[in-house]
Design a protein around this nucleic acid. Structure first.
Lengths: 192, 192
DNA sequence: ATTACTTGTTCACTTAAGTTAAGAAATACG
DNA sequence: CGTATTTCTTAACTTAAGTGAACAAGTAAT
């Protein structure tokens, strides 16, 4: 399980055994049941999440119903905006499936970073990369129709469509569940 | 003009006079005319932009017409995704108005960063902050209708609506110019 | 000054998403 | 196992966005 983490890290920096041990000794791995909420609206938190196995999502409750805006699966990291801004969270984060997460605290990260400057470098590279990736995703979202977005998702993250309830997918695509259902029917119609 | 830059930087790190001089001596300020294209589709580039005055935008050309997805105004920074991924650009960047930009090269940044670790720290803080901000923007976009998005923009960046041509605003809001025009008429109707 | 181009609005029509409601299918749980 | 709940689909209707076209106003260019 830890190997997955170190494979990921190796894309950004090269760690010594001592450094790897330092991470392992922090004992940050957590096993969570499907449906577990790990961050609630209104809470303050300093925790970042790295998904080793499973899937977590960000969702809002607007006019009484859930709006899911993001999913994080294997080898993806999330530092919730509220951790950065140090304000109460506007949204919820919960497990879509049984999941194994690495949960790190920003205070602790600061400590690690001062001991091992490499981590700092990794964090910078990672957030620059995520910023760029998210920019592209946002641009694609803006420039395409719901149907195109769905087809695009089918290409890029086909697994998500299988693992995630469709009403959560719908809001992720910026539409209502009924529209997603209809849109799928429309696509099938076209194919035949 | 440089004061604006140092005011901005001071939000992240505290610079000494020597460090400030080092930046100034690099002579990175550029004055550009409205309409100037600073990055074209297909180009490779290592340049990041910081807007001191004016406004720049990202746009794509899809099926022959422009789709503007982002605007950057005073005190906002853009490192185009293609600089991070080191691949040819998928989009254009151009000046919406006569602008003064600080244009820095990533090779040069690396050099500065190694001389002055503070810059590295600033870059990390900045990209973490921008990532969080963009996540929130994306979430708001997904969870609201075109009309809500327009009203939201009116609250948050009223200046943009004045400075930017409406057909560019439209694609920024994810709709067609005609729809924006109609939507605005609808809002006026409601008010009266 | 005239022409050309850009920009914004309006209109009629088409297409697709939102809404409300009902029912079927799958899943969870006692 | 059966019941409750969640999830998904379908349908009829409403609302709003997309499309194509025409026109007016403003701007730039010769």
């Amino acid at each position: 399980m830890q190997d997955l983490l170190f494979d990921f890290i190796s894309k950004y920096v090269t760690l010594t055994e001592a450094e790897k041990n330092a991470i392992v000794s922090l004992d940050l791995f957590r096993t969570l049941k499907k449906g577990t909420t790990i961050l609630k609206k209104g809470q303050k938190s300093k925790d970042s999440y790295f998904v080793l196995e499973g899937c977590i999502r960000i969702y809002y409750i607007i006019d009484g119903d859930e709006k899911t805006t993001a999913f994080y699966t294997e080898m993806e990291a999330l530092t919730p905006p509220c951790v950065v801004s140090k304000t109460p969270s506007e949204y919820y984060v919960s497990c879509v499936e049984d999941s194994i997460l690495l949960i790190s605290n920003s205070d602790m990260e600061a400590e690690i970073n001062s001991k091992f400057p490499k981590f700092d470098l990794m964090c910078r590279k990672l957030s620059e990369e995520l910023l760029a990736k998210q920019r592209i995703d946002f641009d694609e979202f803006k420039t395409s129709s719901p149907e195109q977005r769905y087809l695009n998702l089918l290409q890029k993250r086909p697994d998500l469509i299988q693992r995630v309830p469709q009403h959560q997918l719908a809001s992720y695509l910026g539409i209502k569940p009924q529209s997603l259902s209809r849109l799928r029917a429309r696509i099938l119609e076209k194919k035949s």
